[in-house]
Design a protein around this nucleic acid. Structure first.
Length: 376
RNA sequence: GUGGAUGUAGCUCAGCUGGUUAGAGCACUGGAUUGUGGUUCCAGGGGUCGUGGGUUCAAGUCCCAUCUUCCACC
């Protein structure tokens, strides 16, 4: 996988780059829609490609392993063929599920044993079989198996967790190097920096992760409940250590403001469930602020959903109509909001990229952060 | 007509033998949601307890009357 940096902002650490995978190019900074279970919820692949203009989407190892299962994906010829998405893909390793599904899992040196949230059956993920699984799924970028620490997190727990993540990374890397892609296209492995909110741990982890010389590096364990300033502080610290010539991926982030601020700190890739999950629950993000479509104030607002929006839904449906759909529990509401929000997120990072290339990112970012944080 | 039930928040109901400012679920009004378990959590507003009398220190609760709705039987 290739990555080149095309422009660097003079006043911030923002970069505009180009990532090249076997399934095509990705212009960074980029937002990657989350498609956990072999679909971006409530959005057609066609709309994802032509309307949202998504360049790369996510899948999830844990969820796909449980359903539909590896045999089905292998027989389909991999996740690209199975879903019909022929552009770049990235799979998360399941490390986050180990965190979020806590209570039905047990963590050991060997790996993690857990019970399926679907039928309670017992399974084990190890660094090795998570790589094998991601070979079968066949995404262009695959993630190392890590432990995402909760927040707050005791120093000793964070330290042990970080160390086990490092040992697992070594095992992931070995397995990755000793296995081949199943479908003829190249895959690449991203390691993940951990260390919770402790500067020395984050520094140590970023240094360790950098030494692997991967094609790209991820920052995990943030946006799990810590204050935004802490998240930015850690991100800044880590970006100062990770190699400059490789893409940096901040996992699970975030709000439009989080993304803009993190781009300024030198992050190139993002993913987050917010535009889709919050969208399904009535939240609409726009360049002028965000709105809760369930609120009473939209009941007779017949203006377009977002007159400045880039999606066809923005000028196809009125706010009053979208509010009606949400209040009636109509599925179309979630579909409209998901499509709109993803379009907005992709517009936002695309515009950030343009501003970086034009040398005007810093000022634009500051103004945009204020706007997108406004409640409408 | 007779007998038996019923009446408490917008809706469906809980309130044991009378005892602090009458509760729940849903709905309603807001808020949260960050590598997704089609959500889930949090907060808030809202009731002359059908009506009128009575007993009692004290009545949603007991007594009488009346009205509402339902059931059964003539």
């Amino acid at each position: 996988m290739k990555f080149i940096i095309q422009d660097t902002d003079k006043h911030t650490h923002a970069r505009a780059g180009l990532l090249e995978t076997a399934h095509g190019k990705v212009e960074t900074p980029i937002f990657m829609p989350v498609g956990t279970a072999a679909n971006v919820k409530a959005v057609h692949m066609r709309d994802l490609r032509d309307d949202v203009k998504a360049q790369i989407i996510l899948g999830n190892t844990y969820h796909l392993y449980l359903r539909p299962g590896l045999d089905i994906i292998r027989m389909a010829g991999g996740l690209h063929k199975f879903t019909g998405w022929d552009r770049p893909m990235l799979t998360d390793s399941g490390g986050y599920q180990v965190y979020s599904l806590t209570g039905i899992r047990k963590l050991k040196e060997e790996g993690v044993t857990f019970q399926s949230h679907i039928d309670g059956s017992r399974h084990m993920f190890t660094p090795e079989n998570v790589i094998d699984t991601q070979r079968i799924i066949g995404a262009d970028i695959i993630m190392a198996f890590d432990e995402c620490t909760p927040y707050p997190c005791e120093y000793d727990y964070a330290k042990n967790s970080m160390e086990i993540t490092h040992r697992w990374l070594k095992r992931c890397t070995e397995r990755f190097e000793n296995t081949q892609p199943h479908y003829g296209h190249e895959q690449t492995l991203f390691p993940i920096v951990q260390g919770s909110v402790y500067r020395d741990l984050r520094k140590q982890s970023a240094t360790e992760i950098s030494s692997f010389g991967a094609d790209g590096n991820a920052i995990g364990g943030l946006s799990v409940g810590e204050p935004h300033e802490v998240m930015y502080e850690m991100t800044e610290l880590i970006c100062g250590i990770l190699p400059k010539d490789k893409p940096r991926y901040l996992m699970g982030v975030g709000t439009p403001a989080n993304i803009l601020e993190s781009i300024a700190l030198g992050v190139d890739m993002f993913d987050c469930v917010m535009p889709t999950r919050n969208g399904r629950n009535g939240m609409i993000f726009t360049r002028r602020g965000f709105m809760n479509m369930l609120n009473n104030k939209w009941k007779d607002d017949y203006s377009m959903l977002d007159k400045e929006g880039t999606s066809f839904v923005d000028t196809q449906y009125s706010r009053a109509y979208v509010r009606h759909l949400f209040r009636s529990g109509e599925l179309l509401g979630g579909m409209i909001a998901s499509l709109h929000n993803l379009s907005f997120y992709l517009w936002l990072v695309g515009e950030a990229r343009e501003q970086i290339r034009a040398g005007t990112f810093g000022l634009w970012k500051n103004e945009m952060v204020k706007k997108v944080s406004t409640r409408l």
